[in-house]
């Protein structure tokens, strides 16, 4: 008997991601974001999304700048050492993008609640934080039924779709993540539908050779897309580092809506293969891969 294949092309994501969906975006800081899928969302003109991120960066900034979002849930969005995220700032400060700023632990615990099919999970939450006051729909103070201790209930987060980028998967959807998985696993458990892009699709035998690396089993995956360098300009540790030269260029472009539009036209609104050529092709990819390998321990 042959096994079912979940392999799709980037262009197939619109079969799963629909206008108005709540989309959990994997990755963390400047690493592991599903950037090829993000670019495809922009190319496919999917709109009115609510993006959910724990620690976002250029993934969220691109979606905001391209006008794909009608709401944002985040605990952190920053370009780290490169500065604050320009489109994110502009959209909130000047254009009034609605958002829910939730503390990082509450987003993670909320996703875990979603994955466990629970309406909430309690923890010793952020008492004293104004965010609890501002977003009562995500936080409630409750009493422990055993001790009476005051606790915070973090509301379950159930995304319509989770999108993540990983190291490898087989065609049936068993996913291995070599490096930082952030909240990818929790997002995939909580979401109704899930898409994963991977550096390479390998055989099921290859996956079974090292099952300890498999973080997400196939029944939690709906579509697998092969997208080499699919996290660029973010890192996919330990395979390649983030691309600081491209990110600096991005920061300049995103400084104004006009130049950002040029960025979208030049890099994003063309097939993914042309994107990979535009950012420097094989030479740039090999520099970023070599940098990731050449680390020095003390």
């Amino acid at each position: 008997m042959t096994t079912e294949s979940k392999v799709g092309k980037l262009g197939d994501i619109k079969k799963i991601i629909k206008d108005g969906d709540k989309v959990a975006v994997g990755g963390s800081w400047l690493g592991g974001h599903p950037m090829a899928i993000i670019r495809e969302i922009i190319r496919s003109n999917i709109k009115n999304l609510t993006a959910i991120t724990v620690v976002g960066s250029i993934d969220i900034d691109l979606l905001v700048g391209a006008g794909c979002l009608s709401r944002l849930m985040f605990s952190f969005v920053s370009m780290e050492a490169f500065g604050l995220a320009p489109n994110f700032r502009r959209a909130i400060e000047k254009e009034g993008l609605p958002y829910d700023e939730i503390t990082g632990l509450a987003v993670i615990i909320g996703l875990e609640a979603g994955g466990r099919n629970m309406p909430f999970l309690p923890y010793r939450g952020p008492f004293g934080s104004d965010l609890v006051k501002y977003r009562p729909e995500f936080y409630k103070e409750i009493k422990c039924p055993f001790t009476g201790e005051a606790l915070i209930a973090a509301a379950a987060i159930v995304p319509d779709v989770a999108i993540i980028h990983a190291t490898r998967a087989d065609h049936t959807g068993n996913v291995q993540i070599e490096g930082t998985s952030g909240t990818d696993v929790e997002m995939m458990r909580a979401a109704k539908k899930r898409i994963v892009s991977v550096e390479e699709i390998v055989s099921p035998e290859e996956i079974r050779r090292n099952p300890y690396k498999t973080k997400i089993p196939k029944f939690q995956v709906d579509m697998v897309i092969e997208a080499p360098m699919g996290a660029h300009p973010c890192a996919c540790a330990p395979s390649y580092v983030f691309d600081p030269w491209h990110i600096m260029q991005y920061m300049q472009a995103a400084a104004s809506p006009e130049t950002f539009q040029q960025y979208l036209d030049h890099y994003v609104k063309k097939p993914e293969w042309e994107y990979l050529e535009a950012i420097g092709g094989i030479k740039q990819a090999s520099i970023l891969r070599r940098l990731a390998r050449e680390v020095k321990f003390l």
Partner: peptide, 30 residues
């Protein structure tokens, strides 16, 4: 990042994540 008990490494602007990951004793989710 995901790295637990990683070997101390030489700092680099770009390589902190791969250094921590390659030198980790354990890899965790958040």
């Amino acid at each position: 990042y995901a790295a637990v008990d990683f070997r101390p490494f030489q700092l680099s602007f770009i390589r902190a994540e791969s250094s921590a990951t390659i030198g980790a004793s354990c890899i965790w989710t958040m």
